[in-house]
Amino acid sequence: MTKERDQLQSSYDNMTKERDQLQSSYDNMTKERDQLLDINNNLTLERDQLQSSYDNLTMERDAIQQKLVTPLFTVFLFEEMCFKGWRKFGSSYYYFSNGRKNWAESRQYCREMGADLLIINSREEQEFIKEVNIYAWIGLSDAQTEGIWKWVDGSPLTTEYWRKGEPNGAHKDEDCAVNEVVSRKMWNDMRCSYEAGWICESTVPPMSL
């Protein structure tokens, strides 16, 4: 009995020792795992910081390039537009057509270039367009309410340069305004279906067709 007891005790001691060794190994592996997780988290944080720095530098580079390129592009575009009917006056750009269209078609042509039919805001602007000898639509109409003339941006007519006796509605549906080449190059009301030249205006350099 004593011998069997000693054998059992020895087996128990060995198993206890193995258990302790396994527990120690487990604890070491857990510690190593936690260390690796910490390293991974630190590397992830560093990567994200580097990515953020890279993104910021990329944005700064693009902003600098834009500042350098935009003035050059604007000059190039304006020079190109000068050969395609565009002229600059004050803070606006003007397109003087060579063809003839009705008022609605003329406005559509302007809008496709990011512009609109001309809005005249000053005597200086009126004098400027008088230099160009074309019979042209401007962005003025009373088609919405007879006798209430408005510009294409919805603003009311305040400064007028009508030809003497105009607008007179001499013919039915004379709801659109043209700038004449006769009678001191002032305005006349015409049927919107009449075909004439046109003048587009944009406050930024528009893309030419």
Results as ranks from 00 to 15, higher is better:
Gly139Met: 06
Ser52Lys: 09
Asp20Leu: 13
Phe83Thr: 14
Trp86Gln: 10
Thr70Arg: 10
Pro71Cys: 03
Gly99Tyr: 05
Ser97Leu: 08
Ile134Ala: 08
Glu125Cys: 01
Asn41Ser: 15
Asp48Cys: 05
Glu125Gly: 04
Gly114Trp: 05
Leu118Cys: 15
Trp103Asn: 10
Glu131Trp: 00
Leu50Met: 06
Ser92Ile: 01
Glu32Ile: 04
Ser53Trp: 02
Glu32Phe: 01
Asp48Gln: 11
Gly139Ile: 03
Glu60Thr: 10
Ala63Arg: 15
Gly90Ile: 02
Glu127Asp: 14
Ala136Gly: 12
Ser122Glu: 07
Tyr109Asp: 14
Gln66Trp: 01
Arg107Leu: 01
Glu79Ile: 00
Asp55Lys: 07
Glu60Ala: 12
Arg123Trp: 03
Lys101Cys: 07
Arg47Ala: 11
Ala143Arg: 05
Ile64Thr: 07
Trp137Leu: 06
Asn121Ser: 15
Tyr54Glu: 07
Ser92Gly: 01
Glu146Val: 09
Asn41Trp: 04
Ser97Ala: 15
Leu72Val: 13
Ile39Tyr: 02
Trp103Gly: 05
Leu68Gln: 12
Met113Leu: 04
Phe78Cys: 04
Asp27Asn: 14
Ser91Trp: 05
Tyr93Phe: 15
Ser25Trp: 02
Glu124Lys: 12
Arg19Ser: 08
Gln65Cys: 01
Lys130Ala: 13
Gln21Ser: 10
Asn121Gln: 14
Trp137Ala: 09
Leu117Met: 14
Gly99Thr: 10
Leu57Asn: 10
Thr145Arg: 10
Gln35Asp: 11
Thr44Leu: 13
Asp34Phe: 03
Arg87Ala: 06
Glu131Phe: 01
Met29Cys: 03
Asn41Cys: 02
Met81Gly: 02
Phe83Glu: 09
Arg107Trp: 00
Arg19Tyr: 13
Arg107His: 14
Val75Ser: 15
Val75Trp: 03
Ser53Leu: 08
Cys110Lys: 08
Tyr93Arg: 09
Ser91Met: 05
Ser122Asp: 09
Leu57Pro: 00
Gly99Glu: 11
Asn102Arg: 09
Asn102His: 06
Gln49Ile: 07
Phe73Pro: 00
Tyr54Gln: 07
Leu50His: 04
Asn40Lys: 14
Asn56Glu: 12
Phe73Ser: 11
Glu125Arg: 09
Ala115Gln: 03
Leu36Gln: 09
Ile64Met: 10
Val75Asn: 08
Ser141Trp: 05
Ile120Glu: 09
Tyr26Trp: 08
Val132Gly: 02
Gly147Glu: 09
Leu117Trp: 08
